[in-house]
Design a binder for these strands. Structure first.
Lengths: 365, 365
DNA sequence: CGGTGTCATGACATCGGTGTCATGATTCCA
DNA sequence: TGGAATCATGACACCGATGTCATGACACCG
C-alpha cells in the first residue's frame, strides 16, 4: 500500500506538501498541486486513518452495540427489526457527518457488553450508542470516561442520555383518531403487563377517552400477549372472546402490536367475522411488512425507529463536540398514526349493537 | 487517555516490557509482570489499535456494505430483514475471530459504493463483504487490490467469490415433502418473473415433480407478486382465482414468499375457504414473524440467511489469511423445510375433488 | 574457572501521517 | 529602494505502539 512518502517522491515534493494537498489546510502552488494529484491517482494512494489518528486523536469511529440485554429474551428469536431500523437512522446521520460505524452485538448476553466496549475503546471510538430491541430499562457498565454514551430505545437509572419512543402519545393519538371516526367502545388487547410500553400506552388510551368524555371501562382491556410463545394463540383467543361477548361489545379492537393484530385477523376470520364490516382492528408499530400486506391493510400507530436513531446520533455528536445542546432526558420521539382500511371511517350508529357469532372452541391447532 | 509510556513510568519499567506483558510474546519476570498489570488497571489503560496497527499493518477491521443496489428498489421500503440476518451471521463469525465489523449502507444508491469502499480502505479494512437484500446480480466497482471482497446473497460476472441461497434445492425439498404428504396437484404462485429466485425455484419445483413421476401442469403456475405494490392484492387475487377454478384444482398452494402467503390467508378466508381443511398453503423464506404468527402457522422453506453470512465471513477470513481453502464459486447454502400446520399431513384421497366457493369479485378494498 | 547459552530487560528505530517552525522567494507599500 | 508582509515549501519532531538488537545477570558444562 502506497504511503505519503511514495507520493511525495513521485511528485518530487516533500511529504508535508502532499499532506497539504490532501487536507487543504495551507495554500499550495497550482503546478505543485497538479503534480501531487497526479501522483496520488497514479499510485492509487489512500491515506491511512490510523496514522492520521495518531496525531489528531480523532478516530472518526462510532461504536454501536445492539442486542437484547433483557432477561426475557428466549435466545433464538431474531427480533432484530427494530434494531435494524434504529441502526439505519443512526447510520444516515453518521455517514452525513463522515463518521464510520463500528457495530457489535451481544448475541443476547449482556455479559459480553464490557468486552465489546473495550474493543471500541481500543479503536478509540469517539462515542458509543446502545440500541435495545424494545422499550426497556437496562443496566450497563459505566462508560469509560471521555467516551460519551447514548441509549436508544432504552434507559437506565443513572441518568445516561436516552432516546425513547413516546408510547403514551402514540396510543393517545391513535385512540383519539378512532374516536374521531365515531368509535366509542374501544377494545384494547395489551402487551404483557410489566412492560414499560404497556403501562405508557394504557395511560395514553385513558387520556384520549378522558379528553373525549368517554368513560373508561376496564372490561374492554385484556392482555393479549404472553412472553411464552406456546400459549400466545390461546391467550389471544380468550381475550378476544371475552371482549366480544360483553353485553356492549367494542366496535374496534386495538392490538398491542401489529403481530398481535395479524394473529387477531386469523382468529376473527376463522369465526366468520369480517373486517372492517363487523369489527375494526388497529395495531401498533407500523411494522410495514405486516401492516401493508395484511388484508385489509392495518391502521396502526408508528413506532418511529429511524427517527429515534437519528435523534440518538445527533445527540451523541453534540456530546462529542462538547456542545451544550440541551436535551431533556429522556428525549421522547413520537410518530404518526397510519390510517388504513382496517378501521371503518364511520362507526355504526349508536345503539346498533352487533352480535358476534361466538364459539367456545379454542385454537383448533 | 493513558499510553504505554504512562504505564511504564508507573510500573518503573520500559515501554517495551509493558508491550511484552500485553502481548505475551517474550518471557517477563513474575514480579515485573505484576507491577505492570497493577499499573495498567490503575490507569485504566487500553492499548491504541491505531498505533498498534501502524507497525503490524493489521487493522482487525472488516468492512460491510449493505443496501439495495438493485434498480427495482422503490426507495422507501425498509426491507432490511434479510440484510440483518446475514449481518448477524457474519458478526458471529467475526467476533469469534476478534475482528471488528465496520458497517455502512448505501441507502439504496449504488453510486455511494465507491465512497464507502474508500472509507474502508482509509481504515485499512482487511476485507470487505457486500450484502444484498435478495438474490440478485450486482455490478460493483473492482475492489482495491489487496483487499479481498466476498458477495453475500448476490453475484457478479467477474467471478468474485459469492455465497448464494440454494433456491433450486429449497423449493425442491419443500415440494418433495408436500408430495410425500400425499399432495399431487401443487399450485405455485411465483415471485415476479425475471428474478433469479423465481427461475431457480421453478426448476426445483419441476425436479421434485419429475422425481415423483408427476406430470408438470403449467396451469398450476401463476405469478402472484408484482414489484408494483399497488397492484399486488389484485394480482394475487386473480392468480388464486385462476388456479382454484381449474377443473382439477390444487390441494396445496405454494407461495413465492411468506409475505405472499400471509396475503393469501386473508384472501382465502375472505372467501370462506379454511386452511388447511379446504386447502393447504406453503411459503418460502421462513420469515419467522410471519410464519410462526400466522394462524395456522405456515409451512415454509427456510432461506438460511444467517448461515450464508457465516459462510461468507469464513470465506473472507480464509482469503485474508491467504489460505488456499478451495470453495466452489458461487457457494450455495441450503436450508431446511419448516413443517407447520398450514399443510395437511395427508392430502384428501385421490379422486375427491374439492369444489371451492368462488366469486368473481375482486379485492373489495 | 572460563566460555557458552538462556533469561529478563532496555535503547532505539520505525510505521505514516501532521503540527511547528524555519527558510527562501515574491510582492507590496512607504 | 529597502524593509515588512505574504507565499510556497521543506526539515524535523511527534503521536503510541512494536521489531530488532544489545546488554547484564545467571546457570550450566566440560
Amino acid at each position: 500500500m502506497a504511503t505519503i512518502y511514495d507520493v511525495a517522491k513521485v511528485a518530487g515534493v516533500s511529504p508535508k506538501t502532499v499532506s497539504r494537498v490532501l487536507n487543504g489546510d495551507a495554500p499550495v502552488g497550482e503546478k505543485t498541486r497538479e503534480a501531487v494529484e497526479k501522483a496520488i491517482s497514479q499510485l492509487g494512494y489512500v491515506p491511512s486513518n490510523a496514522a492520521r489518528m495518531m496525531r489528531s486523536s480523532r478516530s472518526g469511529l462510532i461504536g454501536l452495540i445492539t442486542g437484547a440485554i433483557s432477561t426475557t429474551s428466549d435466545g433464538n428469536e431474531p427480533k432484530g427489526l427494530p434494531d435494524l431500523l434504529i441502526v439505519q437512522g443512526i447510520q444516515s446521520v453518521m455517514s452525513a457527518t463522515g463518521m464510520t460505524l463500528m457495530i457489535a452485538d451481544t448475541g443476547g448476553s449482556s455479559a459480553r457488553v464490557p468486552e465489546l466496549v473495550r474493543t471500541f475503546v481500543e479503536h478509540r471510538a469517539e462515542g458509543i450508542i446502545y440500541v435495545a430491541d424494545y422499550h426497556q430499562r437496562v443496566e450497563l457498565p459505566p462508560a469509560p470516561k471521555g467516551t460519551p454514551l447514548v441509549l436508544a430505545n432504552c434507559y437506565d437509572d443513572r441518568g445516561t442520555p436516552s432516546v425513547l419512543p413516546d408510547d403514551e402519545r402514540g396510543q393517545h393519538d391513535l385512540v383519539s383518531r378512532l374516536i374521531a371516526a365515531g368509535h366509542k367502545r374501544i377494545g384494547y388487547l395489551t402487551l404483557p403487563k410489566g412492560m414499560d410500553a404497556t403501562r405508557l400506552r394504557l395511560e395514553g388510551y385513558k387520556r384520549a377517552l378522558a379528553e373525549a368524555g368517554i368513560e373508561f371501562d376496564p372490561e374492554l382491556i385484556s392482555t393479549g400477549f404472553m412472553h411464552d410463545k406456546q400459549r400466545n394463540s390461546a391467550v389471544l383467543w380468550d381475550a378476544i372472546d371475552r371482549v366480544l361477548s360483553l353485553p356492549n361489545p367494542p366496535t374496534v379492537l386495538c392490538c398491542g402490536n401489529d403481530e398481535m393484530a395479524m394473529r387477531a385477523y386469523g382468529i376473527l376470520r376463522t369465526r366468520g367475522i369480517r373486517m372492517p364490516e363487523d369489527i375494526s382492528v388497529a395495531g401498533y408499530d407500523n411494522y410495514r411488512v405486516i401492516a401493508e400486506t395484511l388484508f385489509p391493510p392495518l391502521t396502526t400507530a408508528e413506532l418511529p425507529y429511524a427517527a429515534m436513531g437519528a435523534r440518538a446520533a445527533d445527540w451523541l455528536l453534540s456530546l462529542i463536540n462538547d456542545e451544550t445542546h440541551q436535551q431533556t432526558n429522556p428525549t421522547l420521539v413520537s410518530g404518526p398514526v397510519n390510517w388504513r382500511s382496517s378501521v371503518t371511517a364511520n362507526a355504526s350508529a349508536d345503539g346498533k349493537t352487533i352480535r358476534f357469532p361466538l364459539s367456545n372452541g379454542r385454537n383448533p391447532q
